[in-house]
Simulated assay, not measured.
Amino acid sequence: MSSSPSRRVPIESQKVDAPLTSSATFLVLRIAEGADAAASVRDAISGIDDIVKNVGFRDLDAMLSCTVGIGSAAWPRLTARRAPAELHPFAAVVGPVHTAPSTPGDLLFHIRANRQDLVFEFERQLLDALGDSVTVVDETAGFRYFDVRDLLGFVDGTANPVGNSVADSTLVGAEDGDNVGGSYVVVQKYLHELDRWQSLTTEQQEAIIGRKKADNVELDDAVAGQKSHKTLATIVVDGVEHDILRDNMPFGSPGSSSFGTYFIGYSRYLWVIEKMLENMFIGDPPGAYDRLLDFSNATTGCVFFAPSADFLGRLADEQLPA
Protein backbone atom coordinates (compact mmCIF):
# COMPACT_ATOMS: atom_id res chain seq x y z
CA MET A 1 0.00 0.00 0.00
CA SER A 2 2.10 2.82 -1.31
CA SER A 3 0.04 5.81 -0.22
CA SER A 4 -2.85 6.40 2.18
CA PRO A 5 -4.50 2.96 1.83
CA SER A 6 -7.46 4.15 3.88
CA ARG A 7 -8.65 7.31 5.59
CA ARG A 8 -7.83 5.61 8.87
CA VAL A 9 -4.13 5.28 7.99
CA PRO A 10 -2.62 8.61 6.88
CA ILE A 11 0.95 7.30 6.61
CA GLU A 12 2.73 5.16 4.07
CA SER A 13 2.56 1.44 4.77
CA GLN A 14 4.69 -1.35 3.42
CA LYS A 15 3.23 -3.16 0.41
CA VAL A 16 1.67 -5.98 2.38
CA ASP A 17 -1.07 -6.16 -0.27
CA ALA A 18 1.32 -6.46 -3.23
CA PRO A 19 -0.28 -8.57 -5.99
CA LEU A 20 0.24 -12.31 -5.92
CA THR A 21 3.32 -12.97 -8.03
CA SER A 22 4.72 -16.01 -9.79
CA SER A 23 7.81 -16.17 -7.54
CA ALA A 24 8.62 -15.37 -3.93
CA THR A 25 11.31 -16.03 -1.36
CA PHE A 26 10.61 -16.12 2.38
CA LEU A 27 13.80 -15.30 4.27
CA VAL A 28 13.99 -15.61 8.08
CA LEU A 29 17.16 -14.36 9.78
CA ARG A 30 18.71 -14.08 13.23
CA ILE A 31 20.68 -10.97 14.22
CA ALA A 32 24.18 -11.52 15.60
CA GLU A 33 25.07 -10.38 19.11
CA GLY A 34 26.34 -6.87 19.69
CA ALA A 35 25.43 -3.27 18.98
CA ASP A 36 27.40 -3.20 15.72
CA ALA A 37 25.27 -5.99 14.25
CA ALA A 38 22.07 -4.20 15.24
CA ALA A 39 23.35 -0.96 13.71
CA SER A 40 24.18 -2.73 10.43
CA VAL A 41 20.69 -4.22 10.31
CA ARG A 42 19.11 -0.82 10.95
CA ASP A 43 21.09 0.69 8.08
CA ALA A 44 20.21 -2.13 5.69
CA ILE A 45 16.47 -2.27 6.32
CA SER A 46 16.05 1.51 6.36
CA GLY A 47 17.47 1.49 2.83
CA ILE A 48 15.39 -1.43 1.59
CA ASP A 49 13.63 0.71 -1.03
CA ASP A 50 16.99 1.54 -2.60
CA ILE A 51 17.67 -2.15 -3.18
CA VAL A 52 14.18 -2.61 -4.64
CA LYS A 53 14.82 0.23 -7.07
CA ASN A 54 18.33 -0.97 -7.89
CA VAL A 55 17.07 -4.43 -8.89
CA GLY A 56 13.52 -3.72 -10.00
CA PHE A 57 14.33 -1.11 -12.66
CA ARG A 58 15.30 -3.95 -15.02
CA ASP A 59 11.63 -4.86 -15.42
CA LEU A 60 9.10 -2.61 -13.73
CA ASP A 61 6.25 -4.84 -14.91
CA ALA A 62 7.66 -7.68 -12.78
CA MET A 63 6.42 -5.86 -9.63
CA LEU A 64 9.39 -6.55 -7.38
CA SER A 65 8.65 -5.79 -3.73
CA CYS A 66 9.92 -6.72 -0.29
CA THR A 67 8.08 -6.57 3.02
CA VAL A 68 10.21 -6.43 6.17
CA GLY A 69 9.05 -7.95 9.44
CA ILE A 70 10.70 -7.55 12.86
CA GLY A 71 10.41 -10.11 15.65
CA SER A 72 9.73 -9.36 19.31
CA ALA A 73 13.28 -10.11 20.50
CA ALA A 74 14.82 -7.90 17.81
CA TRP A 75 12.46 -4.96 18.30
CA PRO A 76 14.18 -3.38 21.37
CA ARG A 77 17.59 -3.88 19.70
CA LEU A 78 16.58 -1.88 16.64
CA THR A 79 14.42 0.93 17.99
CA ALA A 80 13.52 2.74 21.19
CA ARG A 81 9.92 3.06 20.03
CA ARG A 82 7.21 1.24 21.93
CA ALA A 83 6.69 -2.27 20.63
CA PRO A 84 3.38 -3.15 18.94
CA ALA A 85 0.75 -4.06 21.52
CA GLU A 86 0.37 -7.71 20.49
CA LEU A 87 3.93 -8.48 19.37
CA HIS A 88 5.36 -11.53 21.12
CA PRO A 89 7.10 -14.78 20.13
CA PHE A 90 5.04 -17.39 18.33
CA ALA A 91 3.28 -19.46 20.98
CA ALA A 92 3.39 -23.17 20.15
CA VAL A 93 -0.08 -24.68 19.79
CA VAL A 94 -0.21 -28.23 21.16
CA GLY A 95 -3.25 -30.18 20.07
CA PRO A 96 -4.41 -33.73 20.84
CA VAL A 97 -2.54 -35.08 17.80
CA HIS A 98 -0.62 -32.30 16.06
CA THR A 99 1.56 -29.37 17.18
CA ALA A 100 2.27 -25.97 15.63
CA PRO A 101 5.89 -25.47 16.76
CA SER A 102 7.57 -22.19 17.64
CA THR A 103 10.89 -21.57 15.88
CA PRO A 104 13.41 -18.69 16.10
CA GLY A 105 13.49 -15.63 13.87
CA ASP A 106 14.42 -11.95 14.31
CA LEU A 107 13.76 -10.68 10.78
CA LEU A 108 11.48 -11.67 7.92
CA PHE A 109 11.94 -10.60 4.32
CA HIS A 110 8.99 -11.44 2.05
CA ILE A 111 10.42 -10.92 -1.44
CA ARG A 112 7.99 -11.04 -4.38
CA ALA A 113 8.22 -10.61 -8.15
CA ASN A 114 6.98 -12.09 -11.40
CA ARG A 115 10.55 -13.04 -12.29
CA GLN A 116 12.63 -15.43 -10.21
CA ASP A 117 15.88 -13.78 -11.33
CA LEU A 118 14.79 -10.48 -9.78
CA VAL A 119 13.91 -12.23 -6.52
CA PHE A 120 17.30 -13.93 -6.57
CA GLU A 121 19.23 -10.74 -7.28
CA PHE A 122 17.36 -8.78 -4.63
CA GLU A 123 18.11 -11.42 -2.01
CA ARG A 124 21.78 -11.50 -3.03
CA GLN A 125 22.17 -7.73 -2.68
CA LEU A 126 20.21 -7.71 0.58
CA LEU A 127 22.41 -10.36 2.19
CA ASP A 128 25.52 -8.56 0.94
CA ALA A 129 24.28 -5.41 2.68
CA LEU A 130 23.55 -7.29 5.91
CA GLY A 131 26.86 -9.17 5.85
CA ASP A 132 27.88 -11.06 8.96
CA SER A 133 25.39 -9.15 11.11
CA VAL A 134 22.86 -11.93 10.42
CA THR A 135 22.58 -15.66 9.96
CA VAL A 136 20.00 -17.41 7.81
CA VAL A 137 17.48 -19.48 9.78
CA ASP A 138 15.24 -20.42 6.88
CA GLU A 139 15.17 -19.65 3.16
CA THR A 140 12.20 -20.93 1.17
CA ALA A 141 11.56 -20.22 -2.51
CA GLY A 142 7.92 -20.40 -3.52
CA PHE A 143 6.23 -20.48 -6.91
CA ARG A 144 2.78 -20.07 -8.38
CA TYR A 145 1.28 -23.46 -9.19
CA PHE A 146 -1.19 -23.57 -12.07
CA ASP A 147 -4.26 -21.40 -11.37
CA VAL A 148 -3.10 -20.32 -7.88
CA ARG A 149 -3.44 -23.82 -6.39
CA ASP A 150 -1.49 -25.46 -3.61
CA LEU A 151 0.24 -28.79 -4.13
CA LEU A 152 -2.80 -30.53 -2.66
CA GLY A 153 -4.69 -29.42 -5.77
CA PHE A 154 -6.99 -26.77 -4.26
CA VAL A 155 -7.18 -23.04 -4.98
CA ASP A 156 -5.48 -21.14 -2.14
CA GLY A 157 -6.27 -17.69 -0.74
CA THR A 158 -9.93 -17.59 -1.78
CA ALA A 159 -11.03 -16.04 1.52
CA ASN A 160 -8.71 -13.02 1.24
CA PRO A 161 -10.32 -9.61 1.73
CA VAL A 162 -10.71 -7.38 -1.32
CA GLY A 163 -11.08 -3.67 -2.01
CA ASN A 164 -11.27 -1.29 0.93
CA SER A 165 -11.56 -4.18 3.38
CA VAL A 166 -7.90 -5.11 2.77
CA ALA A 167 -6.61 -2.15 4.78
CA ASP A 168 -9.18 -2.69 7.53
CA SER A 169 -8.13 -6.34 7.85
CA THR A 170 -4.36 -5.91 7.67
CA LEU A 171 -3.27 -2.50 8.95
CA VAL A 172 -3.07 -1.44 12.59
CA GLY A 173 -5.18 1.63 13.31
CA ALA A 174 -5.76 4.08 16.12
CA GLU A 175 -6.02 1.24 18.65
CA ASP A 176 -2.18 1.23 18.67
CA GLY A 177 -1.26 4.79 17.73
CA ASP A 178 2.52 4.32 17.86
CA ASN A 179 2.33 1.59 15.22
CA VAL A 180 -0.37 2.80 12.84
CA GLY A 181 0.03 1.41 9.34
CA GLY A 182 1.91 -1.70 10.40
CA SER A 183 0.77 -5.31 10.17
CA TYR A 184 1.27 -8.48 12.19
CA VAL A 185 2.78 -11.32 10.17
CA VAL A 186 2.72 -15.04 10.98
CA VAL A 187 4.70 -17.55 8.92
CA GLN A 188 4.68 -21.35 8.98
CA LYS A 189 6.08 -24.06 6.73
CA TYR A 190 3.83 -27.05 6.14
CA LEU A 191 5.16 -30.27 4.60
CA HIS A 192 2.59 -32.43 2.80
CA GLU A 193 2.34 -36.21 2.67
CA LEU A 194 1.21 -36.20 -0.94
CA ASP A 195 1.07 -39.97 -1.38
CA ARG A 196 -1.39 -40.35 1.49
CA TRP A 197 -3.39 -37.31 0.41
CA GLN A 198 -3.67 -38.57 -3.15
CA SER A 199 -4.91 -41.91 -1.88
CA LEU A 200 -8.12 -40.18 -0.74
CA THR A 201 -11.06 -39.80 -3.08
CA THR A 202 -11.83 -36.34 -4.42
CA GLU A 203 -14.96 -36.27 -2.27
CA GLN A 204 -12.94 -37.05 0.88
CA GLN A 205 -10.47 -34.29 0.06
CA GLU A 206 -13.28 -31.81 -0.56
CA ALA A 207 -14.89 -32.64 2.79
CA ILE A 208 -11.62 -31.92 4.58
CA ILE A 209 -10.97 -28.65 2.75
CA GLY A 210 -14.58 -27.44 2.58
CA ARG A 211 -14.53 -26.54 -1.11
CA LYS A 212 -14.97 -28.24 -4.47
CA LYS A 213 -11.67 -29.18 -6.03
CA ALA A 214 -12.48 -28.43 -9.66
CA ASP A 215 -14.28 -25.10 -9.45
CA ASN A 216 -13.49 -23.92 -5.88
CA VAL A 217 -17.18 -23.65 -4.94
CA GLU A 218 -17.62 -23.39 -1.17
CA LEU A 219 -19.35 -26.32 0.53
CA ASP A 220 -21.91 -25.81 3.29
CA ASP A 221 -20.60 -25.83 6.85
CA ALA A 222 -21.24 -29.01 8.78
CA VAL A 223 -24.30 -28.72 11.02
CA ALA A 224 -22.62 -30.86 13.67
CA GLY A 225 -19.50 -32.94 14.12
CA GLN A 226 -16.25 -32.50 12.23
CA LYS A 227 -15.71 -29.07 10.70
CA SER A 228 -13.77 -28.48 7.50
CA HIS A 229 -10.50 -26.56 7.19
CA LYS A 230 -12.41 -23.67 5.60
CA THR A 231 -14.76 -23.42 8.58
CA LEU A 232 -12.07 -23.74 11.27
CA ALA A 233 -9.96 -21.04 9.57
CA THR A 234 -12.89 -18.59 9.49
CA ILE A 235 -12.95 -16.42 12.62
CA VAL A 236 -16.31 -14.92 13.60
CA VAL A 237 -16.70 -13.03 16.90
CA ASP A 238 -20.04 -11.52 17.94
CA GLY A 239 -21.33 -11.98 14.42
CA VAL A 240 -18.37 -10.18 12.83
CA GLU A 241 -15.98 -12.08 10.54
CA HIS A 242 -12.33 -11.10 10.96
CA ASP A 243 -10.29 -11.57 7.78
CA ILE A 244 -6.56 -11.92 7.26
CA LEU A 245 -4.55 -11.57 4.06
CA ARG A 246 -2.81 -14.76 2.96
CA ASP A 247 -0.03 -14.83 0.39
CA ASN A 248 0.75 -18.54 0.66
CA MET A 249 2.93 -20.22 -1.93
CA PRO A 250 3.81 -23.81 -2.79
CA PHE A 251 7.42 -24.95 -2.52
CA GLY A 252 9.13 -28.26 -3.01
CA SER A 253 11.67 -30.54 -4.60
CA PRO A 254 10.48 -33.67 -6.41
CA GLY A 255 14.03 -35.03 -6.31
CA SER A 256 13.99 -35.08 -2.50
CA SER A 257 10.25 -35.86 -2.24
CA SER A 258 9.68 -32.59 -0.38
CA PHE A 259 6.36 -30.85 -1.02
CA GLY A 260 4.80 -28.08 0.99
CA THR A 261 2.96 -24.81 1.47
CA TYR A 262 4.52 -21.73 2.99
CA PHE A 263 1.79 -20.00 5.00
CA ILE A 264 2.11 -16.26 5.47
CA GLY A 265 -0.73 -14.28 6.99
CA TYR A 266 -0.95 -10.51 7.45
CA SER A 267 -3.42 -9.21 10.02
CA ARG A 268 -4.42 -6.05 11.85
CA TYR A 269 -4.81 -8.15 15.00
CA LEU A 270 -2.46 -10.98 15.90
CA TRP A 271 -5.15 -12.68 17.98
CA VAL A 272 -7.15 -13.44 14.83
CA ILE A 273 -4.43 -15.71 13.42
CA GLU A 274 -3.77 -17.20 16.85
CA LYS A 275 -7.45 -18.11 17.18
CA MET A 276 -7.40 -19.66 13.72
CA LEU A 277 -4.44 -21.86 14.68
CA GLU A 278 -6.11 -22.80 17.95
CA ASN A 279 -9.18 -23.95 16.03
CA MET A 280 -7.06 -25.94 13.61
CA PHE A 281 -4.70 -27.67 16.03
CA ILE A 282 -6.80 -27.99 19.20
CA GLY A 283 -10.20 -28.14 17.53
CA ASP A 284 -13.59 -26.48 17.75
CA PRO A 285 -14.85 -28.07 19.90
CA PRO A 286 -11.55 -29.23 21.45
CA GLY A 287 -10.51 -32.57 20.01
CA ALA A 288 -12.16 -32.00 16.62
CA TYR A 289 -8.99 -30.65 15.07
CA ASP A 290 -8.47 -29.81 11.39
CA ARG A 291 -8.16 -33.14 9.55
CA LEU A 292 -5.96 -31.46 6.95
CA LEU A 293 -3.21 -31.66 9.57
CA ASP A 294 -3.22 -35.45 9.23
CA PHE A 295 -1.62 -34.87 5.82
CA SER A 296 0.17 -31.54 6.34
CA ASN A 297 2.78 -31.11 9.08
CA ALA A 298 3.79 -27.69 10.46
CA THR A 299 7.58 -27.46 10.86
CA THR A 300 8.12 -23.77 11.68
CA GLY A 301 6.25 -20.91 13.35
CA CYS A 302 7.27 -17.26 13.75
CA VAL A 303 5.58 -13.94 14.52
CA PHE A 304 6.78 -10.61 13.14
CA PHE A 305 5.52 -7.06 12.84
CA ALA A 306 5.84 -5.26 9.52
CA PRO A 307 6.05 -1.58 10.52
CA SER A 308 5.10 1.24 8.20
CA ALA A 309 7.42 2.26 5.37
CA ASP A 310 7.80 5.61 7.15
CA PHE A 311 9.07 3.77 10.23
CA LEU A 312 11.65 1.81 8.22
CA GLY A 313 12.86 4.86 6.32
CA ARG A 314 13.69 6.75 9.51
CA LEU A 315 15.09 3.81 11.46
CA ALA A 316 18.77 4.44 10.71
CA ASP A 317 18.49 8.02 11.95
CA GLU A 318 17.10 7.06 15.36
CA GLN A 319 19.33 6.91 18.40
CA LEU A 320 20.30 3.29 18.91
CA PRO A 321 18.82 1.92 22.16
CA ALA A 322 21.25 1.01 24.91
Rank of each mutant, 00 (worst) to 15 (best):
S2T: 14
S4G: 02
P5D: 02
S6L: 09
R8E: 14
P10S: 12
Q14P: 02
K15I: 08
K15W: 08
D17R: 01
L20F: 14
T21V: 08
S22A: 14
S23P: 00
S23H: 11
T25S: 13
D36Q: 15
D36M: 07
A38M: 01
V41R: 00
D43T: 12
D43G: 14
S46V: 02
I48W: 07
D49M: 03
N54Q: 15
N54Y: 12
G56V: 05
R58Y: 06
R58M: 11
R58W: 03
R58I: 05
L78C: 01
R81N: 13
R82S: 13
P84R: 00
P89C: 04
F90M: 13
F90V: 00
A91V: 13
G95Y: 05
V97W: 01
V97A: 11
T99P: 03
T103L: 04
P104A: 06
G105F: 01
G105D: 05
D106N: 10
F109R: 00
N114F: 12
Q116T: 10
D117E: 08
L118P: 00
R124P: 05
D132N: 06
S133Q: 07
T135Y: 02
D138H: 05
E139N: 14
E139H: 12
A141E: 07
F143H: 10
R144K: 13
F146I: 08
L152C: 13
L152R: 00
D156I: 09
V162H: 03
G163C: 07
D168R: 15
D168H: 07
T170F: 03
L171F: 06
G173Y: 07
G177L: 12
V180I: 15
Y184M: 06
V187T: 15
Q188T: 07
L191T: 12
L191Q: 08
Q198Y: 13
Q198D: 14
T201H: 03
T202N: 08
T202G: 11
E203R: 11
Q205W: 03
K212P: 04
K212R: 15
K213N: 10
N216Q: 08
E218R: 14
A222T: 09
V223T: 15
G225C: 06
G225R: 10
H229D: 10
K230E: 09
A233Y: 00
A233L: 05
I235P: 06
E241G: 03
D243C: 09
L245R: 09
R246E: 07
F251H: 07
P254Y: 00
G255Y: 12
G255I: 10
F259L: 07
Y266T: 02
K275A: 09
K275F: 04
N279L: 00
N279M: 04
F281Y: 15
G287C: 01
A288T: 02
Y289F: 13
F295Y: 15
F295H: 12
S296C: 12
G301H: 06
G301F: 04
V303H: 11
V303Y: 07
S308W: 06
L315N: 02
L315Q: 01
A316T: 09
E318F: 03
L320C: 01
P321E: 03
A322S: 15
